[in-house]
């Protein structure tokens, strides 16, 4: 009566962390997607630039050298210097630390807030209308306007920027998690837990949330990209991290007045933003191709 399968499953044993996604050989499938591979490379490069890129530079991001003001890109200053003679390469590299830090903090807060609110709204019927109507109210404002309003009210600082961005992205994330949770709550394993007598908290934490992770992770990579862009925008508009913080947005803003004689001042921070947003978007697209069951083509 023992039923040992005739097919051999040994090659399907997934690494424990991959089991997070409930699929075998996830990493192999991920890198099979060119979109994911390119996005992953860009993001990796960015992280490298932020961590060890600074070591390649002999300059401090805020040390001024008035003899070398507005120097064009060259062997001394790879990306040139700005109107105070500060090395732009160093500032872009340090700026990527800021951008990634802001992005990461926004993603963590948005992830926790969005997942909890979304899962609650999706699973607990009584809370659905209350939570989602509040989220709708937030979503009625354009995200950027909301962020500007919050930072304007709280004052410019790293933490305030993070809070402002997280507040603008949580409603969208919550809405996506809620959508998945609505599907998960109809799954028979949720009913099985209820038959056994499981309480709402257990069902949420053990069944609903883990199965919303896929769509949450995809959404969060996009949030990361938005956050990087939004942080730069806020800096540019003067409501983000105040100068002389070497953020990309500040870099573009200070280069605006010199755009004719020193185009590199704005160009390189601008390229960095483009690069980062592109990288995270590609990463998200690649992840979605693999994680989103609606788009997944089974053979």
């Amino acid at each position: 009566m023992t039923n040992i399968s005739t097919t051999d499953h040994t090659d399907l044993q997934p690494a424990p962390w991959l089991a997070l996604f409930g699929e075998g050989a996830m990493s192999r499938r991920l890198f099979r997607s060119p979109t994911f591979a390119v996005g992953f490379s860009i993001v990796a490069l960015l992280v490298l630039a932020a961590t060890i890129g600074v070591w390649f530079s002999p300059y401090q991001p805020n040390s001024m050298d008035l003899t070398a003001r507005l120097a064009a890109p060259g062997p001394q200053h790879w990306f040139g210097t700005d109107n105070f003679g500060r090395d732009i390469f160093t500032r872009v590299a340090v700026g990527s630390q800021m951008s990634l830090l802001v992005g990461l903090l926004v993603v963590v807060i948005t992830g926790i807030g969005g997942a909890l609110l979304g899962a609650l709204a999706g699973y607990v019927r009584a809370l659905d209308n209350i939570i989602m109507r509040v989220m709708d109210a937030f979503m009625a404002f354009p995200a950027m306007l909301l962020a500007i309003a919050i930072t304007a009210a709280l004052g410019p600082s790293l933490m305030n920027v993070v809070v402002a961005l997280a507040v603008s992205y949580i409603p969208r994330t919550a809405r996506i998690v809620r959508g998945t949770a609505l599907v998960v709550r109809e799954q028979q394993y949720v009913e099985a837990a209820l038959v056994a007598g499981a309480h709402t908290r257990r069902v949420l934490l053990v069944h609903v949330l883990p199965n919303c992770l896929g769509s949450l992770i995809v959404q969060l990579t996009f949030v990361f990209a938005y956050a990087v862009l939004a942080e730069a925008t806020l800096s540019y508009l003067g409501v983000g991290l105040p100068p002389p913080a070497p953020t990309w947005g500040n870099g573009i803003a200070s280069g605006r007045e010199y755009i004719v004689e020193a185009w590199w001042m704005s160009l390189f921070p601008g390229l960095a933003i483009t690069f980062a947003v592109l990288g995270f978007n590609l990463l998200g697209d690649g992840l979605r191709d693999v994680l989103d069951p609606h788009l997944r083509a089974e053979t």
Binding site: Q187, Q188, A192, V195, A196, V206
Partner: peptide
Amino acid sequence: QFVFQDPMSSLNPRMTVEQIIAEP
């Protein structure tokens, strides 16, 4: 207790067999 129809959706894909069986 209850045995469900769909052998796919009745088991949480993120849990091991042991966790699933031990849940009750």
